[in-house]
């Protein structure tokens, strides 16, 4: 039986604003085993990104718990959570989030170096070749198109062979054709590495490539589909 890699129990997130308290996530639980892929869909403001942030340990819930690769995130401080992310987590963002000061190769090397891999350069090069950017290794983000930047970001996300990959609207900033190619790449690499994929998206077609799908509305889980 596959073990659980990511468990969320009774997650709630409440923020305080000038107009009082606002609950943006209500009592949400889910469990993912290795190799699972989960799509989180919903309208803007439904709490998708908040949930992603909590699952990845970028933020802490107001109540409830997240256990990621055996680590109860609420019990860790920010630096300890960072270590967990470095070891087990990869990210792909809508706006690519590459470091302007590093070239493509260095951007991909980054998570490997954070983890202390000796062969970071070689692995990064192989991955960039895998995503079709073998000729653009020394190019800086500014010199790359949106699709190319996202491919660098995907290579970076898979570089450290994470147990869980979080992707936040990975095709949101791209045209249909490029978006299609990026999602192929994402799912292909995910399959190769056997990572767990958590994907936030508006794109129903992309969502349906995942094994499971949850739909959020006003912070509530309204639909849970397991095809």
């Amino acid at each position: 039986m596959s073990s659980s890699i990511l468990t969320a129990r009774n997650l709630s997130k409440v923020v305080t604003s000038t107009e009082g308290e606002l609950t943006i996530l209500h009592d949400l639980s889910l469990e993912l085993i290795s190799g699972d892929s989960l799509a989180i869909v919903g309208r803007s403001g439904s709490g998708k990104s908040t949930l992603l942030g909590l699952l990845a340990g970028l933020d802490l819930p107001s109540s409830g718990s997240v256990v990621l690769a055996g680590n109860d995130l609420a019990r860790l401080d920010e630096d300890q959570r960072a270590r967990v992310r470095a070891e087990h987590v990869g990210f792909v963002f809508q706006s690519f989030q590459l470091l302007d000061s590093l070239n493509a190769l260095e951007n991909v090397m980054l998570p490997l170096e954070l983890e202390g891999h000796a062969d970071a350069r070689q692995r990064a090069r192989t991955l960039l070749e895998r995503v079709g950017l073998g000729q653009r290794l020394t190019h800086y983000p500014r010199q790359l198109s949106g699709g190319e930047q996202q491919r660098v970001a995907i290579a970076r996300a898979f570089a450290a062979e994470p147990a869980v990959l979080f992707a936040d609207e990975p095709t949101g900033n791209l045209d249909n054709h490029t978006g299609e190619r990026i999602s192929d790449l994402l799912f292909g690499l995910n399959k190769e590495q056997g990572a767990t994929l958590v994907l936030v998206t508006h794109d129903e077609r992309l969502a349906h490539r995942c094994q499971r799908l949850i739909r959020l509305e006003g912070g509530h889980l309204v639909d849970h589909v397991e095809p």
Binding site: D79, A86, Q97, L110
Partner: peptide, 19 residues
Amino acid sequence: DERIRQGALLRALGAERKL
């Protein structure tokens, strides 16, 4: 601004404060 963005990204990718 640029540094804040960079700091946040590095933290998300797992960099510790010391680094």
